[in-house]
Computed example of a mutant assay.
Amino acid sequence: MNVSSLSQKEYKSTLRDLQIQLVKLQNHIIQNNLRLLVIFEGRDSAGKDGIIKRITEHLSPRDTRVVALGKPSDREANSWYFQRYVSHLPSAQEMVLMNRSWYNRAGVERVMGFCSEAEYQHFMQMVIQFERMLIESGIHIVKYYLDISKKEQIARLEDRRTNPLKQWKISPIDEVAIAKWNDYSQARNEMLNRSHSDTTPWHVVSADDKKQARINVIRHLLSVIDYQNNLNKHNDVDQNVVFQFTPQNLHNGKISN
């Protein structure tokens, strides 16, 4: 796996400063009755769990929720697709972080054949409208796609298989993640192209370097909502690590093939 360009001392010091800012951001959200929804998508082992853990580590558990839904029940599978997610949306004063979201339909369901072509196309036609409706209702939405190289994914999946502390992360989907690398790439490209919009843009995270990914995602998240005494506003996000998606990214090497 990649060695970070940040030393452990520098990483911990920077992370602590940013986590203090996250507490300030949460206080602002609570005091102003705001609603923040943060969506994390990406390949298996891209580091979604690690980033979410660092964001929520020192936040109030009463006002912060992490949503990681499993396989839908029979009832959910036969309901409006977005319905199972609606009950998990943030209420006033809440921050909700989704570890995978309704974009399952454009990723794993698409690649693994868990949905029909008609269901997939209907989702792609509706998702921007759905998110626009949420924005108009007062929910702030931030979408991150964590991108890693094939070499890095192979190394992380192997570590997952052999590390006794990571056994809970193993899933049947892992076994085909590498074999279906190109299929996932194609599904990702179409998802980014068709669900990126001015109101709910995608932000791509180059996540081979876990420490840099965590630091820069938090920096970016802190820039989304203007809050009092924001000491992070002068710390620029590394545009090589977190950047807003454009179709050119699929061809200029900024996103893994």
Rank of each mutant, 00 (worst) to 15 (best):
N240P: 03
L146S: 04
M126Y: 05
L89E: 01
V204Y: 03
S223E: 06
Q31V: 09
G107N: 12
Q21W: 01
N182I: 11
D208Y: 03
G70E: 08
Y120W: 12
V86A: 14
I141H: 03
R105N: 10
G113L: 11
L192A: 09
K48L: 06
H251S: 14
R84M: 06
L6S: 09
G42N: 08
S149L: 12
I170Y: 09
D159W: 10
R62T: 09
V242D: 00
I30V: 15
K151Q: 15
I218K: 02
Q129M: 04
I215C: 02
I55S: 01
Q239I: 09
R100I: 05
I139H: 03
R16C: 05
R65P: 00
D74V: 15
S195P: 00
A77G: 15
E76S: 13
R62F: 02
A187D: 07
Q212I: 01
D209G: 07
P90K: 03
D17V: 09
L221H: 05
S116H: 12
I148T: 11
E10P: 00
V108S: 14
D236W: 07
M126N: 12
K151A: 15
E117G: 09
Y227R: 10
H58Y: 14
V205L: 08
V108N: 12
Q121H: 05
Q26L: 08
P172W: 06
N216W: 00
L222K: 08
L250Y: 04
I139S: 04
R219Y: 01
V66T: 07
N257L: 04
A213G: 06
N230K: 07
M133T: 02
F243G: 07
S4E: 04
D238F: 03
S116R: 12
T14F: 02
V111P: 11
E76P: 09
T200S: 05
F82G: 07
V204H: 08
L18E: 00
I218M: 01
I148P: 02
K211N: 11
S7N: 07
T162L: 13
M191R: 00
S149A: 12
S4R: 07
D44M: 15
L34V: 05
E152T: 15
W202E: 04
K24A: 14
R188G: 06
V142A: 08
A187C: 07
A207P: 06
H234V: 14
Q212K: 14
K233D: 09
R43M: 11
L192M: 10
Q121K: 10
Y103H: 14
D198H: 11
R219S: 02
I139G: 04
E117Q: 13
